[in-house]
Amino acid sequence: MVDRICVPTDDSDAAAAALDHALAVAADHGATVHLLHVADTTRDSVTRIGGDVVDVLEREGESIVADAAARAADRGVETETAVRQGGVPETVAAYAAEADADLLVMSTRGRQGVERLVGSTTERVVRQSSVPVLTLRPGDDETAYPYEDVVVPTDGSGAATAALDRAIPIAERAGATVHVLSVVATGGIGVGDYVDADVLAEYADDEVAEGVERVEAAGVAAVGAVEVAPSAPRGIRAYVEEHGVDLVAMGTHGRTGVSRYLLGSVAERALRTVPVPVLTVPATEADEE
């Protein structure tokens, strides 16, 4: 169940699209949306208007979150608003944790200029956030909600299991199918020379089978797949496009060594390339054991 959703906004078209998606999720779950605007303190923003000294970025931010709250009210969604000063990634991550959010929703692009939620900023939020982050790429086809097909890449690690456990209730609520996917990346060091790709595929079969069993035990439809690709992100994207997947859920850390598929860098590359929303789930220390 999602009760609190944090949405950073900068009034760009991309941020507006992320807000629309977040409002659809909030309306479905009866959740409150926490609207945040970050007045980036890396830029000078204090000026004098008449006889008053004002922070123009904070004043602009108040207008931005008020407009977003009005859009939410039109959808019957309750909101709380905040304008904070600071660096964008750390402020967004800290506010989401402070608000005890269940989900943080943001675009991979934003307004160029004073506050921009560009790809690198989004990736830094993903690295720092203790809250699952749902990212959307602007410019793609209209994002589907509720989701009908959810893919969870797995390497058998605790981080991948954490992502799977987050995806199961999402799929259950929507009546969606969970695709448990393992990608055998042939571009890895030693693959084909010292390590047989077929051997890796056998390990992948076992990891997928365990994931499918976990999903089906929760009463959710599951499909298992092992794909061979030059890299994990390319394999994930190809599977998404071939099977019409609506959401990718993946851990932000994964197993190191020969069978690493879900390292943070892989998740970040998926954010840039996968043409559907990506839910990144931070792994706790217990998950990674």
Rank of each mutant, 00 (worst) to 15 (best):
V92L: 05
A93H: 12
A94Q: 08
Y95T: 14
Y95H: 14
Y95Q: 13
A96K: 08
A99C: 12
A99Y: 10
A101T: 13
A101D: 08
L103E: 05
L104S: 05
L104A: 04
L104W: 02
L104C: 06
V105K: 06
V105I: 10
M106W: 12
S107F: 05
R109T: 11
G110V: 07
G110D: 07
R111T: 11
R111I: 12
R111C: 05
R111A: 15
Q112A: 12
G113P: 02
G113F: 00
V114I: 14
E115V: 15
R116G: 11
L117T: 12
L117Y: 06
V118A: 15
G119A: 15
G119W: 14
S120R: 14
T121R: 08
T121W: 10
T122L: 11
E123Y: 00
E123A: 15
V125F: 10
R127L: 03
R127I: 09
Q128G: 10
Q128T: 12
Q128E: 09
S129W: 04
S130N: 07
V131F: 00
L134A: 05
T135Y: 07
T135S: 09
L136W: 05
R137W: 04
R137T: 14
P138Y: 11
P138D: 09
P138Q: 10
D141E: 12
E142G: 13
T143W: 13
T143I: 11
T143P: 08
T143L: 12
Y147I: 02
Y147K: 00
D149T: 15
D149C: 08
V151R: 03
V152K: 07
V152T: 13
D155T: 09
G156E: 02
G156T: 00
S157A: 10
G158R: 05
G158Q: 00
A160G: 11
A160Y: 02
A160V: 01
T161V: 12
T161S: 13
T161M: 10
A162S: 08
A163T: 01
L164R: 01
D165E: 13
D165H: 14
R166T: 14
I168Y: 01
I168V: 15
I168Q: 02
P169E: 06
P169R: 08
I170H: 03
I170Y: 04
I170E: 07
A171M: 08
E172A: 12
E172T: 14
R173E: 11
R173A: 15
A174D: 10
A174F: 03
G175M: 06
G175V: 01
G175P: 00
A176C: 03
A176M: 00
A176Q: 03
T177F: 03
T177N: 03
V178L: 00
V178R: 02
H179I: 08
H179A: 10
V180I: 08
V180Q: 04
L181H: 07
L181R: 03
L181Y: 05
L181C: 04
S182L: 11
S182D: 15
S182Y: 11
V184S: 06
G187K: 13
G187T: 13
G187F: 09
G187S: 11
G187I: 15
G188I: 13
G188R: 15
I189S: 09
I189H: 09
G190S: 05
G190L: 07
